[in-house]
Amino acid sequence: MSTAKPISIVENFEIYAPKLVDKEEFFCSGHRACQGCGEALAIRLMCKALGKDTVIANATGCMEVIATPYPATAWTLPWIHVAFPCAAAVGAGVEAGLKVLRRKGVNPDRYIKTVTIGGDGGTVDIGLQALSGAMERGHDMLYVCFDNEAYMNTGIQRSSATPFGASTTTAPAGKASIGNKTWKKNVPEIMVAHNIPYVATASPSYPIDFMNKVKKARSIQGPTYIHCLSVCPTGWRAKSEECIKLGRLALETGVFPLYEVENGVYRLTVEMPDPLRPVTDYIKTQGRFRHLTPDEIRDIQGRVDLEYRKLMNKVEHSLSWTE
């Protein structure tokens, strides 16, 4: 049972930020992301936490499109993109290559971290097999999923990370449909089931928490996974200036709690309000949910409560497998 009290220092961000956040940019401005893109912000913060000695493998998706229109690139870290479903396998190859070249004295004798990134489609749908394989084999690699809850790059099609009731271009709301009819797939939990040393959820709305998790994952030699909720104002039909606010409401309503699972032990990393705010606070400003009736919102509230109780049960009762 975890007793550490969750700490939230985001309220004092302006005081802490200059001391805690690296000024060097590894994901530079000038890229073509939409206004208010939560994913581009998250990647910028992730890179600051990772530092220079990092190689990035990127799945196909918004981030590859907006950041690398040849001959321009937003990346100052070494970066490779191959295809949509295979980022984790590419990362596995990068990790193996860096390891063997260092061992053979071809590369300098210095530790370089391999980090693989992908969106929800490239991670939880088409990339799930490659991700599972890479995690199961134990590559020394951090995988970060930037989950914006649909295939935004191709035009807001539904993925298995799309929440129940959201209207997407392939699961649209209509007279005969609520929109997306399935509950969001819990991929962090699938990663926990791989018995890897570190799994966490994160959000750029809590930047210090996110960067601390990236730093912790970077320091662990082995497979680690961070699932980062990345608000997409374009796809969520929300105002671009509400990106950060929506990420915080996702936490405060219990829709997306921030936690980490270290060697099997669950711990909340950002304090949750008690009681949680109602889910309506989160969904009412998002156009993708605006067709929902009060009854349907009640169903969503029930499910959010249940998932939150399940998580808290693990926070209170999980056992470490290293002790």
Binding site: V55, A57, I80, V82, A83, P85, C86, A88, A89, V90, G91, A92, G93, V94, E95, A96, G97, L98, K99, V100, L101, R103, K104, V106, N107, Q129, A130, S132, G133, E136, R137
Partner: peptide, 28 residues
């Protein structure tokens, strides 16, 4: 032979891992 042998979970990943490894300068 001093090499990393990756038992990938599919051929798609075999070629992808070779791409990643080759990208680092390794012989794949």
């Amino acid at each position: 032979l001093d090499a990393e042998f990756i038992c990938v979970e599919s051929e798609h990943s075999a070629m992808s891992a070779c791409a990643g490894a080759s990208g680092t300068g390794a012989r794949a």
